[in-house]
Amino acid sequence: MSESRAVAAANRLPVLKTHKVYVGGKFPRSESGRFDRALAPDGTPIANVCRCSRKDVRDAVTAARAAQAGWAARTAYNRGQILYRIAEMLEGRSAQFEALLAAGGATPEAAAAQVRAATDRLVHYAGWTDKYGQVFSTVNPVASSHFNFSILEPTGVVGVLAPESPLLGLVSATAPAIAGGNTTVVLVTGSQPLPAVTFGEVLNSSDVPGGVVNILTGRREEMLAPLAAHRDVDALVLCTADPDVARSAEIEAVHNLKRVAVRPHEDWANVQSPYEITDLQEVKTTWHPIGS
């Protein structure tokens, strides 16, 4: 009996999941219909992932732009609640993420530590949403009869080249952008895309409005240049240690004078700071006339 079961299992064709991308709160396939295989460290295929094209980038930017005003208009407190909700959902699925990271070659201990750190990072930025404005806005001394103050406003649509670090790096690069009221288009181009696309499923069940985070998988050389040149993208976060990649993206970014932040970290364990939020903010200064 058990022997025949073992034979049946050996004869069975494996079902490889095709991980779809996350755009505008939905999970479409790439418009190109192309896919790549995600491989385990020993080279065995473990899943299929979409190989997105520049048109997918375009669609994702459209979704991010459509969501931006609404997301920025949420109260800071509500954005914090939603970021905390992402952390809750991630915690609830920690076993799945640990398994995905282990399949990518991490030791069980390192995988568990990375999932914990990613969850804590979300909580960290959830806390900052209604505080960075108080800390970094200023009342400015001026030599005239004006009340002069500077406040922070989100830059807009932020393009993120996600780092190789499959979960912690992705969360560390994306959370400060959305905490500050921006919407994001995240390009996942590393060798381990599965935790990132699965993180899209977490986002989708976390009260995050559709379009606030859009996750595309594929190849950097196909997607980064169109995203960096896109005139409707206001800022870039380039998580790469390769200065040539950062440089070529920065050159594309001059078309509409994008804000560019380069994050060359390999170890993301300590990359958490409110300045990661303010890097993606614009300062608005108001002169308000007052009596002498």
Partner: peptide, 9 residues
Amino acid sequence: SGIYQSFDD
């Protein structure tokens, strides 16, 4: 131009 445009333009 080969570059995606913004409605702002």
